[in-house]
Simulated assay, not measured.
Amino acid sequence: MRHRIDGPADGEPLLLGPSVGTTARLWEPQVPELARRFRVIRYELPALDSVGKLAEAVIGLADTLGIGAFHYAGVSLGGAIGAQLALTRPDRVRSLAMICSSARFGEPEGWHERARLVREQGTAPLLDASGRRWFAAGAGTSPAKELLDDLAGFDPETYAACCEALAAYDLRGSLGAIAAPTLIVAGREDPATPPAHARLLADGIPEASLVEISGAAHLATVDRPAQVTAALLAHLPPADGMRVRREVLGDAHVDRAVARTTAFTRDFQDFITRYAWGEIWTRPGLDRRTRSCVTLTALVAGGHLEELAMHARAALRNGLSPDEIGEVLLQSAVYCGVPAANAAFAVVQRVLEEPPSGA
């Protein structure tokens, strides 16, 4: 399957599925925020004529990328694929979001007629009607034009096969078996899968949440991007700050910190874990080596020597050599002051003389 990957390589995997006739561009408004925390994989639909086959193709992609369990979100047909996965491969789906989707997309004959039309004439006859279905704000915006251009160039056989998949799809009797934490998002102006479809999903899937977005038609990710992004971020789990904290500082240090936590310090420890380790250290813009360099410099400048020792150990865990740490301290001597760097060299020297962990 054609796909694009964004976000940190060690982030939790999040697969994003498209609507029929769209490409990975459908999710571009959400990617910057989602890729801060997740390894985001946007796939594109292959020419397969059943939702079951499409779901297995997604599993094949995940296997190829070395991904076990993953979070999943999909628009329309993409959402249906996610529901199928949650039913047939529940061990692989950590959470599910269905956006402008359905348990059944209307009468089969309408989809078969559309498949025949596209095989005979391509997707050009669909452009006007699709623009009206897809965008409540109209098709004149730049993102809307780009998506309609994608539809104009969409492979007719792939589109027709997806129509046949939609014609045969009907999960109305199976929704109660979906166990993954599920979010349903509806566009209130969506003529293709109106809010009644979303309510049927939310009523049928145990403990599913429902968000209805005003002013959104069928492609709500583009029509109302901020609202869809906010709904997804509220649904998806927060970054695992404790895991990152342990990876950077080591289990022994974190275990000591946790053991010393009192009722008075508990909220502060939670704040540090969520904000420093779950939000800042997990951002994709800098790798951990670079973040260690920046942190050491800041601690030298502030004279925070106890924290400096802790982060000198972390810098070694993050792959900096003693010589590289020395270069950071020399740079700090120029810009933070010689006395501050002198004290820092003394602290780091003691860290470097410590016995190896576990000795």
Score class of each variant (00 low, 15 high):
135 F>W: 07
263 A>L: 13
114 R>I: 10
36 R>M: 07
261 T>V: 02
123 T>R: 07
255 D>W: 05
91 D>V: 03
156 P>Q: 09
145 K>E: 12
272 I>P: 09
191 P>D: 11
98 M>T: 08
138 G>R: 00
276 A>L: 10
274 R>F: 07
109 E>H: 00
246 R>T: 15
169 Y>F: 15
215 G>I: 03
46 P>W: 04
112 H>F: 05
206 P>E: 02
333 A>M: 09
293 C>V: 14
356 P>V: 08
43 Y>M: 14
334 V>P: 14
46 P>G: 13
134 W>I: 08
84 Q>V: 06
354 E>W: 04
238 P>A: 15
233 L>M: 15
330 L>W: 04
202 A>Q: 05
47 A>D: 04
356 P>E: 15
286 L>Q: 09
200 L>D: 13
274 R>V: 10
326 G>S: 08
288 R>W: 06
8 P>G: 10
131 G>R: 05
35 A>P: 09
13 P>H: 15
37 R>I: 01
65 L>C: 04
149 D>F: 01
249 L>A: 14
75 V>E: 09
184 I>V: 14
102 S>K: 01
332 S>M: 13
300 V>M: 10
1 M>C: 11
72 Y>P: 08
263 A>R: 11
97 A>W: 00
23 T>F: 03
126 L>K: 01
282 T>R: 13
289 R>Q: 14
38 F>C: 09
88 T>Q: 14
301 A>M: 12
197 H>V: 09
130 S>C: 13
171 L>A: 15
203 D>S: 08
186 A>R: 01
118 V>R: 04
296 L>A: 07
31 V>T: 13
140 G>W: 02
316 L>M: 08
61 L>K: 03
101 S>R: 02
75 V>A: 07
255 D>Q: 07
167 A>Q: 04
237 P>S: 10
226 A>V: 10
144 A>T: 04
132 R>E: 15
103 A>C: 12
256 R>P: 04
133 R>K: 05
251 D>V: 03
186 A>L: 02
306 E>K: 07
345 F>G: 11
89 R>T: 06
102 S>T: 07
73 A>S: 10
269 Q>W: 05
214 S>W: 03
75 V>I: 09
113 E>R: 15
182 T>M: 12
169 Y>I: 05
218 H>F: 07
87 L>W: 00
151 L>A: 06
189 E>L: 03
283 R>C: 01
96 L>C: 06
251 D>P: 01
161 A>D: 07
202 A>M: 03
103 A>N: 09
43 Y>W: 15
50 S>I: 11
101 S>T: 06
33 E>W: 05
245 R>I: 15
78 G>M: 03
221 T>F: 01
335 Y>A: 11
237 P>A: 10
156 P>T: 02
194 P>W: 05
277 W>F: 14
114 R>T: 01
233 L>V: 14
43 Y>S: 15
70 F>M: 14
220 A>I: 04
94 R>T: 07
184 I>G: 06
355 P>H: 08
258 V>N: 09
217 A>P: 05
75 V>S: 07
309 A>P: 12
73 A>I: 03
270 D>T: 10
222 V>Y: 00
204 G>F: 06
147 L>P: 12
126 L>W: 00
15 L>T: 05
204 G>W: 00
205 I>S: 05
124 A>M: 08
226 A>C: 05
